[in-house]
Design a protein around this nucleic acid. Structure first.
Lengths: 203, 203
DNA sequence: GCTAAGTAAGTAAGCACTCACTTATAACGG
DNA sequence: CCGTTATAAGTGAGTGCTTACTTACTTAGC
């Protein structure tokens, strides 16, 4: 197998393990076993254990994870132009919830790295989340100036909205996997969250 | 020093370390150093490392952390009787935010234990959060029957409200310690979150 | 003089990481 | 077509260090 392919395979195994057990809870031996190679091979591709972690967050997080739904969703972009606030926030929530649900491992990894205070995780959150605040906050601000939304700090509205979505995903991923407290579809969640926020901030 | 006092002292050191580095990232040697005793003394009080973790979540979490603000806050109980919805939700948010802010270590510990899938953490979340959903959800349901709130699944409203608060605390604790994205007081946050939710669910 | 509190000095297992070595691949002159 | 050779991919068997945990022993207080 070529070096690049093997490297990718090791990274995939590492993502799976780090997301389950965190950095210090995962051994290089185990990464090698899951990747189906010897431990020495792992160290041929990554000279230190932290290099594996760095590579994951550098590639996976900062390239794959950094795509923004609104840059690819014509439905939402069109709704923004038409000032169809409900569709804008419904699409935002629906896209985000689906994305979070489809990559539970990556979500867990981000949480571990935040707790372990990995610098790359901090950078990821700083850049990615900052752009989200700018984008949604900017739209809310425009609508405030148009008199559609009541005056308030738009970033508080963003935090409230993101809070609903992320906390909902967190519940499903971490604390309430059996959906005992609340068992709803992403469509239902997006619909309700969009409605609560919009009624909550409209003029 | 008496056995019980020493035991407590070791637990305090362990809480501090586990909350910073997680379970597998913390060594028994380090716990002993912080507690100012020998490693052997740690194992006199706790025969295995996991016993320390269990003791923390058993005592600290299930006894100290399980106190509910509404059971002690006369302002909020009175507001509930008077159907002063704003004060009810403002007090809920303000109490929760202050509590979370005052015990960052405990919050981090709960996150670690959720990621590491510690059974006691699951029990804590199951019991504690379930009671919150029952309590707030029950109040919302009553107000719906009185015609004050619009018809909807009350638990979705609870999730939205808890999401705003917990995500806000999480931002301040984990991702945006420098308050770059949003820098507001707990009073401001509680006020805005309560307003957004109430406008969002009122009839 | 008994019991509880405490520890120095271990132990075996596990950890990240290295080294000497083998195999597979492919390019190239004859 | 073959045989040589350079290079990259891969590994078994270690290295020294750290880990959770133990044992045999000392001290302090009633």
């Amino acid at each position: 197998m070529s070096g690049d392919k093997r490297r990718e395979q090791i990274l995939m195994s590492a993502i799976s393990l780090f997301s389950q057990k965190g950095f210090s809870g995962t051994t290089t031996k185990e990464i090698a076993r899951v990747a189906g190679v010897s431990e020495a091979t792992v160290f041929k591709h990554f000279s230190r254990k932290t290099d594996i972690y760095d590579a994951i967050l550098d590639n996976k997080a900062c390239h794959e994870g950094m795509r923004f739904p609104w840059e690819e969703d014509p439905v939402m972009l069109d709704a923004m132009r038409r000032r169809d606030d409900y569709t804008v926030f419904y699409q935002l929530a629906f896209n985000a919830l689906n994305k979070q649900q489809s990559d539970v491992g990556f979500m867990r990894l981000l949480f571990y790295s935040a707790l372990e205070e990995h610098e790359l995780a901090e950078r990821f959150f700083g850049e990615f989340v900052a752009r989200i605040y700018g984008f949604i906050g900017g739209y809310i601000e425009e609508r405030q100036q148009e008199g559609a939304f009541r005056p308030m700090n738009p970033r508080i509205a963003v935090r409230a909205f993101l809070g609903m979505m992320i906390h909902h995903s967190l519940n499903n991923i971490l604390w309430d996997k059996g959906r005992n407290l609340l068992d709803i579809t992403n469509e239902d969640a997006a619909d309700n969250f969009a409605q609560i926020l919009l009624r909550g901030i409209k003029a």
